[in-house]
Design a protein around this nucleic acid. Structure first.
Lengths: 203, 203
DNA sequence: TGTACATCAGTGAACGCGCGTTCACTGATGTAC
DNA sequence: TGTACATCAGTGAACGCGCGTTCACTGATGTAC
């Protein structure tokens, strides 16, 4: 049953993409190697022909996802103001992070990644640097260091907003968190003030 | 070996506090029930006299920690401008989240909490609401809804900054993320521009 | 106040399942001659 | 170009360990009378 080099490469890629989706959807530890393989249409035994370990798969998955994130950010930055605003709105949407195969690893697996091994964290660190450099090009700040500072803060805030929106067990509250972040990051007033939240806060 | 009611209550409290520390330090899944019990000076068999399950312990731990978070925030808000600035600086410090027994659950276990059970998420949601209401009192915004919006964004940004700082594998970079967040949240210029980061970004 | 008995916190061994990893095997690929 | 053989992707069963949970037991507490 040996496969051709092309097929092998395609299989490997498919496993990584499946894993990238499952990791983001269910979390790192909650994702089982056997589940990933099954979702990729394979049995679990063949896993170790492609990867040394589950941890290794995580590194590869993060690498692939960061690549996608960079592509999206590049398009947004090069697409002008409208495209950038759309990009931020998409990132700060419930759907983006709830859709199988999409989402940002920092927002969906953040606290687990803090305990990942060195290769994974290095990949993520480099990916974050690249992401920052891209977003800095869209900053209203003139000076490079100020633009970088601006990008660092905005991206951290975006990650935090999605993280909080996913923890909260109230859909309206989650939306409120995301809308506020969108407004602040884009420097615009939020769409609609939210009555519900204020009421709950009174409790 | 039955213990008095007072002793039992003390033991339960000790287990919860130990768990709260371990969960924040190592993550939810990486924390073993037996480890918590051992760290609390007990054997694991007695765990189920106090809790239904590990998940139940997580709920209790989150509840306790949110209580601490509220106490800290209350002191900060009632202590005037200086106290509040110190509070934000402490939250956005590496030590706070690396110290055993301290740290914010959202920043240290964020992505895992998104998959927690309903009681836990409800506890966290209520805790977040309370936290927002407290911080809103310190907001420069006059109007209540604007102050609330301000608090929501700042707290999300703080959670995101700590989350990112913990993922990144470079201490200087982590500090840069935290300083930028501190500066932005407090509306002040960052302490020192960072050379290193720009250099790395060029790579 | 004293006594008998039920309760139950804590122990330590054991259970049982899940999951990452290994392994013998198959048979198609691809290479050496 | 054809043939023999080594390689190795994928299979499915099995391994082995870890960890949440259960359980029989102990003996101090606390309650009923």
């Amino acid at each position: 049953m040996k496969k051709s080099k092309v097929e092998t490469a395609e299989t490997r890629k498919r496993i990584i993409e499946t894993a990238a989706a499952e990791f983001r959807q269910k979390g790192v530890q909650a994702t089982r190697v056997a589940d990933v393989m099954a979702a990729a249409g394979l049995t679990h035994g063949g896993f170790y022909r492609h990867f040394d370990s589950k941890e290794h798969l995580l590194t590869e998955a993060c690498s692939t996802v960061m690549g996608n994130m960079e592509t999206m950010a590049t398009d947004a930055v090069e697409g002008g103001k409208r495209a950038f605003e759309q990009y931020v709105a998409t990132y700060l949407s419930r759907e983006f992070h709830e859709t199988y195969g999409k989402g940002c690893p920092f927002a969906t697996m953040g606290s687990e990644l803090a305990h990942a091994d060195e290769p994974t964290r290095q990949t993520l660190t480099e990916g974050f640097e690249t992401w920052i450099a891209l977003i800095a090009r869209q900053s209203p700040e003139e000076e490079a260091s100020a633009a970088r500072a601006d990008a660092i803060f905005k991206l951290s805030a975006m990650v935090g907003a999605v993280t909080m929106a996913r923890i909260v067990d109230d859909e309206a509250f989650a939306q409120e968190i995301l809308s506020q972040a969108t407004a602040r990051v884009l420097g615009k007033p939020a769409k609609a003030p939210r009555k519900r939240a204020a009421a709950t806060a009174l409790k």
